[in-house]
């Protein structure tokens, strides 16, 4: 098990290094001048050159990539040119390891820019995840157990509607009616968990529900299908022939088999959501990773984009490892080696 995690982690790190190289080449050797983007629109050529030097854009791309990787391990000091730092000690910004670069647009390290956005996205994603897993499984089980009934058809029909509805419409409606018209909740603002767990949660309900409804619809349909498929398995028939009651038949025998494919999907869906839910964040004005990605993109803030890409990849890689470990836990036939 330990050896397995180590091996997977090594592969994951290798993958991240390749990812960083690819994004580096794509962004920093592309059509536009990164120094110009970093400096801004009204920069004189001298200023651009200064920026270029400060951020190391004057160096060959592989050298830049190398010092970026080194920065992740040992940290960096900006501006990169040692002479400039010695001349202007008040301008120096230290970027501690794992340093993901410096965003001139935000005049801050990428780490600091991400640091404020990560908790917001992670909070929305986690709360939504809990909602959609509970809701999706619950409706899926009810629909599967009453297969063919009006209840089943109702659940299937509703889930189709929610699945098809654009997130921004659901979000806007919830915001308009639940928060503004009926005032069941205050207008959601992000409150850090450390500040007030209660407020953190109540403020997250609306964005999380918005996000969860879409996934809940998908998961209700999927779990219904997986459960119905699993209930035709021979071992479920065996359990029935043993005289096992209906409820344990569902939860002990059928559901566990149906869960296996859902775990894979849930893990990857969560990983991607941890990297930001753009539309939901936009509707509720939560400045998470999704919004950050959009604004960084429109401001051509390349260092931040590279940071977000690597962060998202890390989430996906970790989720993959976790899913595989869970898999081995659920299915004794799977051996981690």
């Amino acid at each position: 098990m330990f050896a397995y995690i180590v091996r997977r982690a090594v592969i994951g790190v290798a993958l991240l290094i390749v990812m960083s190289l690819v994004t580096f080449i794509l962004f920093f050797s592309g059509a536009f001048d990164p120094a110009r983007n970093a400096c801004g629109k009204v920069c004189s050529p001298a200023q651009i050159e200064q920026t270029s030097k400060a951020l190391g854009y004057d160096k060959p791309i592989l050298t830049q990539w190398g010092s970026f990787l080194a920065g992740i391990v040992v940290g960096r000091d900006y501006p990169l040119d040692k002479k400039v730092r010695e001349e202007n000690p008040d301008l120096v910004t230290h970027c501690a390891a794992p340093c993901l670069g410096y965003s001139m647009v935000n005049t801050d390290t990428v780490n600091n820019v991400l640091k404020s956005a990560i908790p917001i996205s992670v909070s929305i994603a986690l709360v939504a995840f809990v909602f959609w897993i509970i809701g999706g499984l619950l409706f899926g089980i009810i629909a599967a157990m009453t297969k063919g009934s009006f209840l089943d058809r109702g659940i299937v029909g509703l889930s189709l509607i929610f699945y098809a509805f654009p997130t921004f419409v659901v979000g806007s409606l919830l915001l308009r009616f639940v928060a503004i018209k009926w005032q069941i909740f205050a207008l959601p603002v992000y409150v850090p968990l450390t500040q007030s767990p209660g407020l953190w949660f109540t403020n997250l309900i609306l964005p999380a529900v918005t996000l969860a409804l879409f996934y809940m619809a998908a998961y209700a349909r999927m779990s219904r299908a997986f459960i119905i498929e699993a209930s035709t398995e021979d071992y479920v028939r065996t359990a029935k022939a043993k005289g096992v009651k209906k409820v344990p038949l569902m939860f002990k025998h059928t559901l566990r088999a149906a869960l296996t494919p859902l775990v894979t999907m849930a893990g990857l869906d969560l990983a991607i959501l941890l990297g930001g839910a753009i539309i939901t964040e936009d509707v509720f004005g939560f400045h998470g990773l999704g919004l950050l990605a959009v604004t960084s993109n429109s401001r051509q803030d390349l260092p931040t984009i590279v940071g977000i890409v690597l962060l998202l990849s890390t989430f996906v890689i970790i989720a993959n490892i976790v899913v595989d470990i869970l898999y081995a836990y659920i299915d004794p036939r799977v051996r981690l080696d």
Binding site: Y235, R237, T238, K242, G243, H253, R256, I330
Partner: peptide, 21 residues
């Protein structure tokens, strides 16, 4: 209450007839 107690059944393929988990 009679299933498995008064009348029991064994199936063709014991691999698929037993729960793998």
């Amino acid at each position: 209450r009679k299933r498995g107690k008064d009348v029991a059944m064994i199936f063709q393929d014991p691999l698929s007839a037993m729960h793998p988990y």
